[in-house]
Nucleic acid binder design. Structure first.
Lengths: 222, 222
DNA sequence: GCTCTTTCGCTACTGGTCGTAGCGTATCTG
DNA sequence: CAGATACGCTACGACCAGTAGCGAAAGAGC
């Protein structure tokens, strides 16, 4: 696998990025514009009112659409919010900046920027909370939000490997587990600092955190 | 400050650990047994139904108490859940096990055990989500849940310092910022792994994570 | 023992939300 | 043009947070 830069649009099914329209191709087709308007309205309402304040009726009104139309596409409020938030994470990327530390710093900065937006603050946590109970929702969150983030870390490692930064003696299994730890550490730490501790993620902080994360991993770098 | 082991009961106001009863000492006193029954019922309902499924009426019924009694002591569902969950974190401690790594491993294990319980899984995330909107609730969460955790990290550092593990040349300001980073990293990583990634925190994982965290911090250890 | 004060349980109620049902209409396919 | 599907609208059922008002219980202080 060649180390490549991940561009925003890279879905397996680019046409049906949001709700799978069960169109069987006979009657009146679904309005794609309505889809977009609903997602936009959801993000807007999320930013203004947060998870708790967001109501389906309000979203419908903002989107200029009937409430029933929302339920024709998304089975519940949670699933609608998953898609509305997930589209933001689609914009993440991991470009090759010459060193693993620089790559990770860029990812952290972008991730922190997303988590600082008002529409994501409460929504992400509320989604995760809901996901601990609803198995189906949990899987959907993983696919649409968590997995795309993890891919970034894997890409960063592939790039570092191609640049010859990594210790070639490490076996693949160990390295894969390390990826898991590193991913949980990056995402969890930034989330905790922003959403729980409530302190900002500055470039200086990113530098210090990334240094802590990378320099020491015994034997990871050559 | 002597490096000391933190015991469970260490509140500034040990009598009013839960709701501040505005008793002015004239008429019928509040039933302390009811307080305990309500908190127990809350945790029980939380474990069974999660945050979304928990209703004040249900909690009242389980506790054998009128719903109005709940609202006489806690202003809202969120605040009740804060206290119900916070009492679990009161049991955390950081005993001196001879090395910083051992101390942190013990804290991580205990913290992970708490986050694995069904009653905390969804409740914590839902609380944090609610806290991003409600300033008052956010402060309360910090006082009752986040701060006690942070104290553990500070205690661990004090113990390490007393044992002579720390580099004495580091200035206090830098060290304090490091405490913040380390705290966010420990809490955030464990939370993310358990609640978002949904993977278990095993002793082996704890060992690897702690090693990653400590060995490398440039100049932290002597 | 008596009174005063506060809490307690109960019932009823308001306001709001999710999610659904039914119907007539609009819009596209073949 | 006919069939099929999506759409907007209104109304509705179920549920829940949180409040109001009352009579009764249970202590505190004398």
């Amino acid at each position: 696998m060649a180390p490549t830069t991940r561009q925003p649009a890279e879905h397996p099914d680019p046409a049906a990025a949001t709700p799978p329209p069960p169109t069987r191709g006979k009657g009146r087709p679904r309005s794609a514009a309505a889809d977009q308007a609903i997602l936009d309205a959801t993000r807007e309402a999320l930013a203004e009112l947060g998870w708790g304040g967001l109501t389906m009726g309000d979203v419908a009104q903002r989107a200029g659409v009937a409430k029933t139309t929302l339920y024709r596409r998304w089975p519940s409020k949670s699933e609608l919010v998953v898609d509305a938030i997930a589209s933001l994470f689609d914009q993440l990327e991991c470009s090759d900046r010459g060193s693993l530390q620089a790559d990770i710093e860029a990812v952290v900065a972008r991730f922190a920027e997303l988590l600082t937006r008002p529409e994501t603050q409460a929504a992400l946590l509320a989604l995760f909370a809901e996901g601990t109970r609803d198995v189906h929702l949990r899987r959907r969150i993983r696919e649409r939000i968590v997995q795309p983030q993890k891919v970034l870390v894997q890409l960063g490692r592939a790039n570092a490997q191609a640049r010859g930064e990594m210790d070639p003696d490490r076996d693949a299994a160990t390295a894969d587990e390390e990826i898991d730890i590193i991913f949980d550490t990056i995402a969890g730490t930034v989330e905790h600092r922003l959403l729980v501790s409530g302190e900002p993620v500055t470039p200086d902080w990113i530098r210090r955190f990334t240094t802590l994360l990378l320099n020491p991993f015994p034997g990871l770098l050559r």
